[in-house]
Amino acid sequence: MALVDRYLQAVKFWLPRNQKDDIIAELSEDLRSQIEEKETELGHPLTDAEIEPILKSCGSPMAVAGRFLPQQSLIGPALFPIYRVIIRSLILYFLLPWLLLWMGIAIFSPDYRADHPGMALFATLEPWWLACTWSLFINTLIFALLDRSQSYSQRINDWNPRALPPVRDPNRVSRGSTIFELTIVVATLAVWVQLDVFHRVFHFFGLTVTLSYRWPEFFWGLVALSLAGIVVSGLNLAKARWTRLSASLRLALDCGSSGLSYWLFRANLLQSLSGNDIPSTEAARFVSFLNQWMARSAIWVLVVGAIIVFFDIRRLRRVDPGV
């Protein structure tokens, strides 16, 4: 019977304090009745090996005790869907991009690795860990408190079907946003033409800025992408919804823009800077600093580009193939 006592002791540990003895007495009586019946059937006292299946059929101590406890949840079923959406968004749009960005920098930037050798590299991830812990903890705490707030539960039940948002069409393109996009592209092109940015040398405020000989390549590439962007906006304006053609063009454009921007950041864009009041050594140091900073930041451009392309691909997959 030592095995039965050990089992009952294990169950007792998880039971509510004021019911422990009562529940254990009842459970004990049931188990002893089962054992007695089996002993009568076999004609001898049961061994531990024969008692074992009886206890196993009763269930694990924690599971048995759990059934005597009231059903509890930190966040109930009414609020859980909202909690899930918030936690999912937090992970997908904040914590995961941050981690990917950190991994990108750690993998592709030798300078970053050199600045943080060995375990110091992982120590730079500390703010991310803190953000994870605190954001998850605070969200869970807020939802647990809301769940216990009577007024909030009441508000959830007091809903009006007419107040629900209209059915969303993910392929619809708002004409307002298309016109805004078109205006921005056309205005940027106009300003650039006005500023005469076709050349590599600029003079303003007593400064002479000379850009890399590769500047025109970037510039004309950008003009080509802007013109293609105007075509996509025109298509969207005409149809007011994403089609296979416009979504594919947008994907190609965003791939091109990301690649071009990455290339620009790594192209040592600024060749020289001069001015009457600036010593040439200082100017050279500034040029070098700016080019190095841009080269280091190129990875960020690539990451942002990858995120945009990810959404473009999702949009393309969503578009009805027949459209």
């Binding site: 009586e29 049931d30 188990l31 059929s57 269930g59 599971a63 048995v64 059934r67």
Partner: peptide, 24 residues
């Protein structure tokens, strides 16, 4: 009935129930 005989009665009528479910 007490717990054990109740379980036996239910089982004899085709409604077998284990201890972990019956007592709670």
């Amino acid at each position: 009935h007490y717990g054990y005989t109740l379980r036996k009665t239910l089982a004899s009528h085709g409604m077998a129930i284990d201890e972990g479910t019956l007592y709670p």
